[in-house]
């Protein structure tokens, strides 16, 4: 068991912490950040475990997957931030309604 597994464990930890923050925080910016932390956790697991075999070059395939994943994450974050600004300009605050369906009965 090499020290590489420590990085993977940290990745799992980030994933869990991000999930906690996503559920707990009401502000949308914090939720978007939490999603990004979860994503970083997944990427860390992917990249870390690629270098498990001692003395050999790391497996390039997970590295490429992470680069793909990062571009996807950047795109999603950009859309999320723009959407957040629109929500704030419509509702006056950057939060989701607690009772989403009540407004439909106006």
């Amino acid at each position: 068991m090499s020290y590489i597994f420590l990085y993977a464990l940290v990745g799992m930890g980030l994933f869990t912490l991000g999930l906690y923050a996503l559920i707990i925080h009401a502000h949308l910016l914090r939720k978007i950040l939490a999603i990004n932390i979860m994503g970083s956790g997944v990427f860390l697991v992917l990249v870390a475990l690629a270098a498990r075999t001692e003395g050999a070059a790391p497996d390039p395939v997970p590295h490429a997957m992470v680069i793909t994943g990062i571009v996807v994450a950047v795109s999603a974050t950009a859309l999320a931030l723009a959407l957040m600004l629109r929500v704030r300009s419509e509702t006056g605050r950057a939060e989701l309604d607690e009772e989403p369906l009540s407004k439909f009965d106006d």
């Binding site: 994933f15 996503l22 994503g39 929500v87 989403p100 407004k103």
Partner: peptide
């Protein structure tokens, strides 16, 4: 557009990203 649709879209985006992760 409008507050309802934008809020619903925002929630949908967060749920969708969470599911993907």
């Amino acid at each position: 557009g409008g507050a309802n649709a934008l809020t619903a879209a925002m929630r949908y985006l967060l749920v969708s990203l969470l599911g993907s992760l």
